[in-house]
Design a protein around this nucleic acid. Structure first.
Lengths: 244, 244
DNA sequence: CGCCTTCTTGAGATGACTCAATGGTGGTGG
DNA sequence: CCACCACCATTGAGTCATCTCAAGAAGGCG
């Protein structure tokens, strides 16, 4: 990981904070990192020194069982905040791995603690962000627990398709209704709690049904209505600006 | 639902706030409710006017699919905060139903919004609480996605057993290592994403293995070590006081 | 006493899994 | 420019965990 001074100001965490109130960030250190695809940003159990904002690239949050089984908790897109958890001083309760090359802004955990205790705007932003993440996590719990393979995958694809539109416009092509999609079938499997082989067969069904095209790291939505219906997906769960 | 003035002060949400700083709550309306077992506190899609703190009783958070399938997101115990979500002004994204008779303290949503924007202590408390809830939700996602019936149920039982110890001491009997447990098998099923019938068979296995006793709404942990091992349960995920 | 809810158990069905082999594609190095 | 390798996707065939359907049994309650 290389490290330089972080040049970017408009981080998602602070997106709701007027620019003229950002002066307090001057007091805190921050620095930019890059990591290669397939590298771990941190591992469950590790004592990470930082929290991060993802500037570019795709990453996954996951947990691993002793038997090696992995559950992907979330796909992280640019603007997402990584490494925050209730116990900021303790070991990480999940791992994060880069899917593509990623650039991140690192922030010392101790500083975040101090800021949270002193900065109302930041704390309020965090409340909103966490609540949104929670809503998504609950959607995944619903999908994993009570949807079959096809429904769960349909939901996941729709979710990512829309999140890319909102968080990473340059990877979205409105004319073809397609997005960059670097997620392997094995990762889809670990996200929805099924087997890679079964993901493969289910994707074939989705292709046969002319709902999607998924080749060369690109996902095209051919029949959005039916796909959304199948997955039980409703865009409103991703509201960019909740009316807190 | 009957409504009277709320007489209680030491709500969990404010547990970290020194009592002498609680004066600001005087400015906000709050009132106590009671609801019967099996009554809904609010339904997904409804525009609830309040958020709540659960004083006594058990409740469940859940989501429902069009086909009627239900996924329980969380079991709520005394001290838990209900009804908070990213979009405080929009419709609820989940439902809450009382398992036993419950008493709650209701707080107008608009007031919470205002408080969040003006009260640093409250915002910080909310950040911590949400982060803890998130950790639990992720544990459930892991269980539902990547554990088998036996492991997932073992985890759930251990989790609730410990949460009762921490949040509702009078329902915990240390001499017999047992807790009050009003959750039906069908609810366990909806919490871990399997069928009631299969829950029943799995519980039988757990009983045969002398790991638990579960009768008459009471859960006894007979072999905590093996049960925790089976479920992959680690108490530390429930830390009462994260070191924010 | 009868009804309702919850628990229990059996038997057959099936969605998803495992194991295993094949094929494609991109990168790398000789 | 080709050979090789690593990684991912694909497909077949048999197995298994979990589901579905169905019927009783065991309380609790009006």
């Amino acid at each position: 990981m290389q490290c330089v001074e972080c040049p970017v100001r408009e981080r998602a965490l602070f997106s709701g904070v007027p620019l003229d109130r950002l002066s307090w960030t001057q007091n805190y250190r921050e620095s930019q990192y890059e990591i290669e695809a397939k590298q771990e940003l941190y591992l469950e159990g590790a004592h990470s020194q930082f929290v991060y904002t993802l500037f570019s690239g795709w990453a996954i949050f996951y947990k691993t069982l002793e038997n090696g089984n992995r559950q992907i908790l979330r796909v992280a897109l640019p603007g997402d905040f990584l490494g925050f958890q209730a116990d900021l001083s303790g070991p990480m309760n999940h791992s994060v791995k880069a899917v593509t090359m990623c650039t991140l802004c690192a922030f010392p955990r101790g500083d975040l603690k101090a800021m949270l205790k002193s900065n109302l705007e930041l704390a309020t932003q965090m409340v909103i962000m966490n609540a949104k993440d929670m809503a998504l996590c609950q959607q995944h719990l619903l999908a994993t627990g009570r949807k079959n393979a096809m429904e769960a995958i349909a939901f996941l694809l729709m979710e990512i398709y829309y999140r890319v539109q909102m968080q990473n416009k340059n990877e979205y092509d409105p004319t073809t209704k397609s997005v960059f999609f670097p997620i392997a079938q094995e990762e889809i499997a670990d996200a929805v709690g099924i087997t890679p082989v079964h993901v493969n067969r289910t994707l074939r069904e989705l292709r046969n049904g002319k709902l999607i095209r998924l080749t060369d790291r690109r996902l095209t939505i051919l029949n959005e209505d039916v796909l959304a219906e199948t997955g039980g997906f409703d865009v409103s769960i991703l509201q960019k600006h909740p009316l807190l």
